[in-house]
Amino acid sequence: MENAQKSIRTDEMIKKIPVRLLKNKLYKGLFFFAAVFTFVLLVVLLARIFSQGAAHLSWDFLQNFASRRPEQAGIKAAVIGTLWMMAVVVPVSLLLGVGTAIYLEEYAKQNRITRLIQMNISNLAGVPSVVFGLLGLTIFVRVLFLGNSVLAAGLTMSLLILPVIIVASQEAVRAVPKELREASYGLGATKWQTILRVVLPSALAGILTGSILAFSRAIGETAPLVVIGIPAFVAFLPKSVFDPFTALPMQIYNWTSRPQEEFHFLAAAGIIVLLVILILMNSVAVWIRNRYEKKY
């Protein structure tokens, strides 16, 4: 009797399986479509920019300064300016970021101050870049009288990407096996010697990978530059970090916001240059990651 009752229910359940499988297939198709859609978005984005900008890419474009006449305009000042800015960003953010990471991972005691610093870092990472621009405008441009110089922009960008570098470096330092440290202590090395000669070299690949990604963010970031008043129309190169300058995204923004279509093509060409730089940096990061990833 029980058997009879049971088999009816099981059979009913079995009968519904094809419908359930169909539902599963539909959802799977939908999710797959979303993935394809995302992929297509990227392809369209890149294809569109290359098709618009490729014709304007030339040696002259890289060699010329900005100009009111689109056919003569170039991005020399912007590219060189971006390099100048990064010459500030890279040492400042690396030093502060790695230093903070080492402090937090190696020295800090588990107390309220440490927790405050840690919480502060994760909140800082979520502050919109335009707000960092306001900070830079007040502190660096006005209070420290740096004006719209390479240094003001570089310091603002350094603070913007600092949380990213700290978190990446913390992870890299944390991944260094305990045994390595213990071996070093066992030889009588002091804590700082151990950090400098054992921990940092082993964590270097991870630190660099994360930092390069942060640097590429600094290169592409526009809003803080706009807010601290970096000009877009510059026909000279900075001679020191105290000189005014322009940067790639500023130049692209300037061209994009002009109504004439010729300037849009220039913007696209500028974007290609920007993207090529970013892709090169990312490739280096991936290369470092793949090369050193499976060390332990």
């Binding site: 984005l45 920019i49 990604l213 590429s216 963010r217 290169i219 592409g220 970031e221 526009t222 809003a223 995204p249 692209i252 923004y253 994009t256 849009h264 913007a267 696209a268 974007i271 920007l274 993207l275 970013l278 990312n282």
Partner: peptide, 9 residues
């Protein structure tokens, strides 16, 4: 990784 200026364009 695409900068927002590119998205804006």
């Amino acid at each position: 990784g695409v900068p927002t200026i590119v998205y804006g364009f």
